Amino acid sequence: MEHTSPTAAVLIIGDEILSGRTADTNLNTIARFLAALGIDLLEARTVGDRPGQIIEALNALRAAHDYVFTTGGIGPTHDDITADCVAEAFGVAIGERDDALAILERRYGDELNEARRRMARIPDGGVLIANPVTDAPGFQIGNVFVMAGVPRIMTAMLEDLVPRLRTGAVVHARTLRVTGVGEGAIAAPLAEAARASRDLSFGSYPFGAGSDGEVGTNLVVRGRDAAAVEAAVDALAAALGAAGISTSRQA
């Protein structure tokens, strides 16, 4: 099938992620955001606060994908180096921007110190990304969107990106829940369903045992043709039923 939807990558920046001090949730949030827009997230990388590594990864990703979303490293502290690295990757200068500084002045007033002024430094040619949580902006340059690492701030910034993105066909997803049997019992019917519908994606996600002691597998069928997804789910449920395995639809 011809691949016409936009593609994307995520670059997660921060020593705190690699050290395990902070658990990343931004990748999942961005993945769900992009899926709803029909944009295919094809790659994700995590790098530390090392300029060479950030620049190398950013240049590779922005050349390979329609969009790159970065998280982390745009705050007021000395190790917030993402903006400088992005400027270097694009070969442009970076400096304090009047519009970004005005936003920070309104936010902090007399408490706008030198450290906070760092957040007004934007690469030349960058377009600000609104931050409705703490006001300090992110920015877009070319096909790269540079956002905060704090999850609630990053999530809020995503809303400002929607009008800027070329969207693809929305991906439809349907889930069949199988309980009481493991993945091994359903492997053959699932493989046959995948062979029969090569334009769709079939995922198998085991669960259990939780507090209720239930063990089973969620089977997720995804595709851009809603009717094809529904038909594939019906066929898979019938095949499992014929093998004596009962299923239930999930919302």
Rank of each mutant, 00 (worst) to 15 (best):
I81D: 04
A100V: 04
A87C: 09
A93I: 00
L61R: 12
G109D: 10
V86R: 01
A102H: 10
N28I: 04
L34M: 09
E88H: 03
F69T: 02
A60Q: 14
L27A: 13
R107G: 00
A44W: 13
E43I: 00
V47Q: 06
E43W: 11
L101Y: 08
P76E: 00
G72S: 06
A60V: 06
F33N: 03
L42C: 13
E56N: 10
G72R: 06
R50Q: 11
P51L: 00
E105T: 13
V47K: 05
L104E: 07
G95N: 13
A115Q: 14
R107A: 10
I30V: 15
D49Q: 09
A35D: 14
A64S: 14
A36I: 00
T29M: 11
T46R: 13
T71A: 04
L41D: 06
L27M: 03
T25C: 01
E96Q: 15
I103H: 03
E96M: 13
G109F: 09
A31Q: 12
I55F: 01
A35F: 01
L41K: 12
L104S: 07
N28A: 15
I54L: 12
G38P: 09
A100F: 02
T71E: 03
F69W: 02
I81F: 03
N113S: 09
L61G: 10
G52W: 10
D66T: 13
V92E: 12
L112W: 09
T71G: 05
G95R: 15
T29G: 00
A93V: 01
D79L: 02
A35K: 12
V68P: 05
I39Y: 08
D40Q: 08
V86M: 06
A63N: 12
P51W: 02
D40A: 10
T71D: 05
V86E: 10
D24Y: 12
A36N: 14
T82S: 04
H78W: 11
L58W: 02
E105Q: 15
L41Q: 09
A115L: 13
G73I: 03
D98E: 15
L58R: 05
R45Q: 12
V92T: 14
A44I: 00
A31R: 14
H65Y: 15
I81S: 06
D79R: 04
F90P: 01
F69Q: 06
R97L: 01
I30S: 03
A83C: 04
I103N: 06
A93W: 02
D110F: 01
A83H: 05
